[in-house]
Simulated assay, not measured.
Amino acid sequence: MSKSTPTQQLRIIGGQWRSRRLRFPAIDGLRPTLDRVRETVFNWLQFDVEGARVVDAFAGSGALGFEALSRGAKQVIFLEKHAKAALQLKENLQTLQASNAQVWAGDALTWLEQNPEPYDLVFLDPPFGKNLLQPAIEQLRLLPGALVYIEHEATLQPQLPANWNEKKSKTTKEFCFRLFEVV
């Protein structure tokens, strides 16, 4: 990462890398999932992460994917379009010596369209205000039992597939975060 790019840090909350801090670039619109939200989400997922094949679409800082890796995910694919963020994700994977993850530096929607194989857990937390959540939901091809986490603006009402059963959700003034199981 170039010295001219300001960086911020996130903290891994649980698992083998608990309390490790990772850098991410200070990019307009990049907002890592808050610690308290990640803690709630991974409490929801406590029995579902170990051994899972995970996609962290619109990865940004990679907070969700790194948390999944730390907690025993079998594989994580980070999808990130912004070149500096993708580069930092790769550097963080090297720092952690995580060989069971890869970064796809490109458009998440394109990747989802071209890679329809099923995953166990998908994180969809696109940049707010860009109308990316609905197309991402429509691109997913998941088997029964798969879990999907979505985070979106509180005012947004995405159209969800009929076979997505909401397991958990929380809403703040600004955003909603929800966990679904494919049935």
Rank of each mutant, 00 (worst) to 15 (best):
K170D: 00
K167C: 04
K173T: 11
A86H: 11
T172H: 02
V55W: 02
Q94M: 02
T7W: 06
F123S: 02
H152Y: 05
D56S: 05
V41M: 13
P161L: 11
R71Y: 04
R11E: 06
T171V: 14
P6M: 03
S2Q: 08
P158K: 12
A98Q: 14
G14C: 08
E166A: 11
V55M: 05
A68D: 01
N100D: 11
I150F: 01
K74R: 09
L79F: 03
R178K: 14
L93W: 13
L69W: 07
Q94T: 05
A105F: 05
Q159C: 05
N165K: 12
L143P: 01
Q139H: 04
K84N: 07
F24G: 02
N163G: 03
Q46P: 00
P126T: 06
G29P: 01
L133Y: 03
K3S: 14
N43W: 01
A59W: 04
R53H: 12
V148W: 00
N165V: 08
F128Q: 08
F123I: 04
L22C: 14
K3Q: 12
C176D: 14
L93G: 05
R31M: 07
L79Y: 02
G60L: 07
N100C: 14
P144N: 07
N92Q: 09
A101W: 13
A63S: 15
G145Q: 07
L124W: 00
E113M: 09
Q139P: 01
L156N: 06
N115H: 15
A105M: 03
D35H: 03
K3R: 13
R38F: 10
L10T: 04
R20D: 11
G65N: 09
S19F: 05
T40F: 12
Q16W: 03
F123W: 13
Y149I: 04
P6G: 07
Q97W: 01
F47M: 00
